[in-house]
């Protein structure tokens, strides 16, 4: 994108994230105000939400980088002590994505196909994603994880756990 005499790169991922956070905050503020305008309701929520929205406006320009400045900038990950380094190679990202999707499927299918089947399928899928290819190990280890966790947690917690086979 060109503005004036300078070219800008837009970090669409960052822009989407920060806009999503701001949208959630704005919706939450409206929702809180729709419930009641009483101080007892808005004492903390309203100032914190307004502060968050102000921070959004402050962060927004960070999503636009001048092309020449971007190249000159130092990598910030080197400075941030608590920053988690996320792999950026395509094959690594695909693996992480596949594992994330499998986790999501397990979580949403726990009550549908039963904890036992969901855990067994997830364990096998996660092992395969992490590089295990031997069918016997895939089968036995997944079975082991399913049996230990289902029976172990059943002994620990008092809530009913919906299962198909166990």
């Amino acid at each position: 994108m060109r503005i004036g005499r300078h070219s800008y790169d837009i970090d669409y991922g960052h822009l989407s994230l920060v806009t999503f956070i701001a949208a959630v905050v704005f919706w939450y503020l409206l929702d809180a105000r729709s419930v009641s305008l009483s101080v007892n309701n808005l004492l903390l929520v309203q100032p914190v939400a307004i502060f968050a929205l102000a921070m959004y406006l402050f962060i927004l320009p960070q999503c636009f980088h001048r092309v020449d400045a971007r190249e000159a900038a130092k990598s910030p990950t080197q400075k941030d002590p608590l920053h988690v380094t996320i792999p950026s190679e395509r094959s690594d990202v695909m693996r992480m994505l596949a594992l994330g999707v499998s986790l999501g499927l397990m979580v949403f299918l726990l009550d549908v196909i039963g904890f036992d089947i969901a855990i067994f399928l997830f364990s096998a899928a996660a092992m395969a994603i992490c590089g295990e290819r031997r069918p016997l190990r895939l089968l036995l280890f997944s079975l082991g994880v399913t049996l230990v966790t289902i029976y172990g947690f059943r002994a620990l917690i008092s809530y009913p756990m919906h299962t198909m086979l166990l």
Partner: peptide, 15 residues
């Protein structure tokens, strides 16, 4: 590294 991002994250967490 970015104070503004830390503050937004904290405010979001509080909410």
């Amino acid at each position: 590294t970015y104070i503004s991002r830390g503050l937004l994250a904290a405010a979001f967490g509080i909410l």
